[in-house]
């Protein structure tokens, strides 16, 4: 199951995920994540207002939408990194509202970040080891007696080496993560997420800032996650990539889910075209920062 063995031409698409017609909030046969009435406002601005959405298990789902559509905020809400004003959501049948981010991660829902969060002054290997769950030596008192955790640590290291080899980062295992290139850091972050054997992997713009030479390998890794039985939800702007690997696409605009469907049909949905063409692209610099730029606007008004 190494990346080299994966056919590069045509990934196998999973179909028949939904029940009935594809529409925003459509029911899935086997949803892994269900969100209901999740709403988040910043000041007066509604960033996310999702009525109902289900993420199908065992598939690759893409979350797309123009800038400022609330995709990253929605990610943050689902993973406990931000708190919604209202709403409930559940993962594998367990309610997640008010569950802190670290517990969400322990349940098997692991995320990555848009701006890569590799731990710069830790070695690549330490980054990997940090990803492993239930470590005895992470307890303050037990950490003082190495014999209690040595064996487990060695096992974790072995597993880390295996995953690093798959991501072609094994030669770098003793380097600081800070010395890796942007694309390698994305790879490391994904590899680190795998250390905890997650059931759902949420990737926030895995391709952003990645050198084109690494793009294919990243795509293969994502496809591999599915092949290994994991569910993937990712945010992406690159439509080619979405079409290439996603089994299901959810489109957000202005905080709401406006369309759902398989990649080919959803791209032709008038609501999607409208969302993309109708969106103003001048708010590109910060998604939730809109409330903070009043002074700048005043200044620009002055000049006109």
């Amino acid at each position: 199951m190494s990346s080299d063995a994966t056919p590069r031409s045509k990934p196998v698409k999973t179909t028949g995920l939904h029940v009935g017609d594809a529409a925003p909030g459509v029911k899935k046969h086997d949803p892994i994540l269900i969100a209901d009435g999740v709403k988040r406002t910043f000041g007066g601005l509604t960033a996310v207002d999702v009525e109902h959405v289900e993420i199908p298990r065992g598939a690759i789902t893409a979350l797309i939408g123009p800038n400022g559509a609330g995709k990253t905020t929605f990610f943050n809400l689902l993973t406990g990194f931000d708190k919604p004003d209202t709403g409930t959501w559940s993962f594998d049948g367990r309610a997640l509202a008010h569950v802190p981010a670290y517990r969400v991660a322990r349940m098997g829902l692991i995320r990555t970040f848009q701006l890569t969060k590799s731990l710069a002054l830790l070695s690549v290997m330490d980054n990997m080891k940090l990803g492993a769950k239930d470590q005895v030596g992470e307890n303050l008192f037990r950490s003082l007696i190495p014999s209690l955790w040595r064996k487990q640590d060695a096992a974790i290291e072995e597993k880390a080496l295996e995953i690093l080899a798959r991501f072609k980062l094994d030669a770098k295992k003793d380097d600081y993560a800070a010395s890796l290139s942007g694309g390698q850091r994305k790879l490391l972050e994904m590899a680190r997420a795998l250390m905890s054997d997650p059931t759902l992997v949420m990737l926030d713009e895995p391709m952003a800032g990645v050198n084109p030479a690494l793009t294919q390998s990243l795509l293969d890794h994502i496809l591999n996650l599915k092949a290994q039985g994991m569910t993937v939800l990712f945010v992406e702007h690159d439509m080619h990539m979405v079409r290439h690997i996603a089994d299901w696409v959810i489109v957000m605009a202005e905080g709401k889910v406006v369309a759902e469907g398989d990649p080919h049909t959803v791209m032709e949905d008038p609501a999607v075209i409208d969302a993309y063409l109708g969106a103003h692209h001048d708010t590109d610099l910060g998604s939730t920062d809109t409330g903070h730029v009043e002074a700048l606007k005043e200044l620009l008004d002055d000049e006109q």
Partner: peptide
């Protein structure tokens, strides 16, 4: 104030 709000944007 603009620099305070967002230096890179300013």
């Amino acid at each position: 104030r603009a620099v305070s709000d967002n230096a890179s944007l300013a």
